[in-house]
Write a protein that binds this DNA or RNA. Structure first.
Lengths: 200, 200
DNA sequence: ACCTTTGTCTAACAGTGTTAAATGTTTTAG
DNA sequence: CTAAAACATTTAACACTGTTAGACAAAGGT
């Protein structure tokens, strides 16, 4: 029967509603302020309904995290596509990362905040979207290709990049109102510095 | 009466007991697993007693954070004292920071984790102990003294340092089991790299 | 002996995640 | 068209959380 499809679509829709409701609350009140009952209120249901779609809160949060990584991956890929030289690509990718952190603060905090998923993300990365870490690793490898880098070498540099930028993001998310000029200086200093060191 | 003193001392002692109990629980179960009732259980009292010593949970956590910063400051000062040249001092200080993060993981997570206090720490820093950030800023200033650095310049470099190292710590706390050699390489690369750039 | 202060606990409130059972509503079968 | 089975949704509960008000008993001072 076609009514099955309709119902399936409705279920799909409320599942989506749960996610967007959670996202809104996380955005407005922070992830600490997110509760199952608040989500239920927002989608005009009662709390247990959510467990029909997600096995628990952690599961729901994981889905949001996945969404976040997908978005970040997309923006970093686009940034990469705007350049030819690996050095420029890397710079653009980390700049995209930087912007993502503030444009989608709520996502970033979920992805790298409280329950730091950091780089590894347990769960299917999906068929089409590449993990940001892999994305960067590719370009680093390209940049170092005449040096025959080991996986460890590439890891080292990826971690160096990520450390600086995540550290900077952390400061700015907590202690906002820092001078943009200062931020920009530290950021570009760090990025170009590392790139220079890699290819030196 | 002298009994007043005894009682005062007993109060002081249970206050201390509360703190150490909280610290133990935080160490064993993580800060998420800390609850007022668990603390009360450990010191063989009931929960409301804690509110006689701390106005709320946040207050108690703040005291622990304070303790953590005190410890870190001490170790960084000792590290500094072991060297003469500002460059070497900086290196040793950040290494001390690095070791502190893992030796006192529970403190570090409280200080820079969940409720990121980052660099600023609202509340009295106390008379004798200097904030780690100020400690580092001093040495950076010393290292740059022939360049007439502005406060912004010093800030920039402090943040750069902190970003890299906090970022690296973050990875290691979450995704432990990373190769020590790799860590060491990234860490020393970053530290000496920044120092070289500062004094270049 | 009485009164006040002090220390401590019990009970409660409002909130959290989560589950089992009871509802009501729709779909299916006879 | 009615009876039964399936589904959707809610109510009620459990075990927690931080926090506060009120009771209660022991100690101190007069």
């Amino acid at each position: 029967m076609a009514s099955k499809d309709r119902i399936q679509r409705l279920k799909e829709e409320t599942r989506c509603n749960i996610i967007t409701a959670a996202l809104e609350i996380g955005k407005q009140e922070g992830w600490q302020g997110l509760s199952m009952r608040k989500i239920a209120d927002k989608i005009e249901y009662t709390a247990p309904i959510i467990y029909e779609y997600f096995s628990n809160k952690e599961d729901l949060l994981a889905e949001l995290t996945r969404k976040g990584f997908f978005l970040l991956s997309k923006e970093m890929q686009e940034a990469k596509a705007r350049h030819r030289l690996p050095g420029k690509q890397l710079e653009a990718m980390w700049m995209a990362y930087w912007h993502f952190a503030f444009e989608h603060k709520e996502f970033y905090q979920l992805m790298y905040g409280i329950e730091m998923n950091c780089c590894a993300f347990k769960g299917t990365p999906g068929p089409d979207f590449i993990m940001p870490s892999d994305l960067v690793a590719e370009v680093i490898a390209e940049l170092m290709k005449d040096k025959n880098p080991t996986d460890d070498d590439i890891c080292t540099w990826y971690y160096t990049f990520w450390s600086v930028i995540h550290g900077l993001v952390s400061i700015n998310i907590v202690k906002q109102g820092m001078s943009d000029k200062l931020n920009h200086k530290v950021l570009t200093n760090a990025i170009t510095g590392i790139i220079r060191t890699i290819s030196a």
